[in-house]
Nucleic acid binder design. Structure first.
Lengths: 263, 263
DNA sequence: CCATCTTTGTGCACGCGTTCACAAAGACAT
DNA sequence: ATGTCTTTGTGAACGCGTGCACAAAGATGG
């Protein structure tokens, strides 16, 4: 794979699978913990255990970055921390704006994990005039009117949307128009963006619903074996049928997301 | 599945792919919005657009649940809302406890999207004695000592961990020991749980890092990779060490709950 | 310098998920 | 009733990700 044996940290970013990219932060965190304990090297087996993944997967992931390990020894922790950080782009400073300073926005602003990873909260923006000037996490909240100015003068390319669902698309459009090309969306909406703009979504409600699905399955299947698929779940279906009416009155309070949090 | 052509709408719960389960909440949200607008039916094409997915994928997803559509017409919105809700287990009430009432925990407690989806916040739990009794989102915070009692007396099976990373595993262990079998983890730690317990992780820092990766790639596509003098691994190691030190500096200006979610 | 031992890097196969493309099913008009 | 038209449901092919298993690489000890 590697052209020659050069330890040249060439940016072969073209060939890194998305699934691998998603795991790099995981490895980085485990490596950072090792680094703090002054551990010089780790084997793929140890690091995989710390990151909660398969060791073969970890080795394959690292192979996409280059040959940074030493056979018979393992990986140099400090060196690997740097390589992954560089690959993820964390060796440079990323100014970030957070739009929507409700409960969640404030939590994000107070989140210490940003600064330690190369992310810097450049501004907090809210549509409520009463919020303007109020300090949150040591930063004065600015009004939405300033959005374009803030983005451009700070060279912000990453935006976080923590507004109610109804305002998300509009905020998104303004962010993109002002130059933002990556968006982390906490609002429970499908954002439409032009090509070249990345959107990632974090949705608490969805995660809970997935858990509920598995929880229901656990409760409904006392039999450890998956046999009798035709009859299994029948009892649950009957029980659920009684709840049909309850499901029907979904209208009321669900109208629009009251809080700032995703639905 | 191909054997025989029984048109029974039986819940073939055993055969629903995980990827499909993860999308069901997405469909449900889009359908709920349609329901509120009193739209009677939708085609797979329309619904897919609203949910931001491919229409073929949507149809295949629904096919795992049964044949709930009408050819030439589409899907009955209300009926589908019920079917998906039932499949996800949202027709029943799920008491949930939130452990760690810092910035994020408070945001979660205030999140209105829970109640409307069958989730009910049964209790808020925090280790800080000063928090005990303080109302958050209309619910009095209880001390960690009460954890087991709360879980058992309320029959809680889903727990949300929003504590600092250092406390997460311990809290997790106690939750599991008390009977919780599904955990939504916001702490940046790999939780170890016994078989039969589901854990889902939400990690803000990871999402941002993935965005940074793509952002960096975008920026580096035209220009020949800014900076990063190759072979300077040693100097970089110093930088990495500095980062480690910064990471260790978890104490924020907010003495209350400085690191609800350290990275 | 050679043998042995450890651990990486990866070729390969398998399974899951996605997408295409189309026949079957039903609505609707005549 | 019959034909036409719309849209579902799904067989089949494809591609990606995962995990196994092992040869190559290098450290270590004699």
């Amino acid at each position: 794979m590697a052209t020659g044996r050069t330890h040249r940290p060439a940016t072969r970013s073209r060939g890194i699978p998305e699934a691998t990219v998603a795991r790099l932060p995981l490895y980085l965190r485990a490596l950072t913990a090792l680094s703090e304990r002054s551990v010089p090297t780790v084997s793929s087996e140890e690091l995989a255990a710390a990151a909660g993944v398969n060791s073969a997967k970890l080795r394959k992931d690292f192979s996409y970055l280059g040959s940074y390990g030493t056979r018979g020894v393992g990986y140099d922790v400090e060196y690997l921390v740097y390589q992954i950080s560089r690959e993820l782009g964390l060796t440079q400073d990323w100014p970030v704006v957070i739009v929507g300073i409700g409960n969640l926005g404030a939590a994000l602003a107070n989140y210490g994990g940003f600064a330690s990873r190369g992310f810097r909260v450049a501004a907090l923006i809210d549509a409520d005039p009463a919020m303007a000037g109020k300090p949150v996490a040591g930063i004065a909240v600015q009004h939405t009117d300033e959005l374009e100015h803030i983005i451009e003068s700070n060279g912000v390319s990453i935006g976080v949307i923590a507004t109610p669902a109804g305002a998300a698309q509009q905020v998104c459009d303004r962010l993109v128009a002002a130059g933002v090309t990556s968006i982390l969306n906490f609002a429970p909406t499908v954002l439409t963006v032009p090509d070249g703009v990345d959107v990632r979504k974090v949705d608490l409600s969805i995660e809970l619903q997935i858990l509920a699905f598995h929880e229901q399955r656990k409760a409904g299947e006392e039999t450890p074996e998956a046999g009798a698929p035709a009859t299994s779940g029948r009892a649950a279906a009957v029980a659920a049928a009684a709840e049909a009416a309850a499901a029907a009155d979904r209208k009321g309070p669900d109208g629009d997301v009251p809080a700032v949090m995703p639905a």
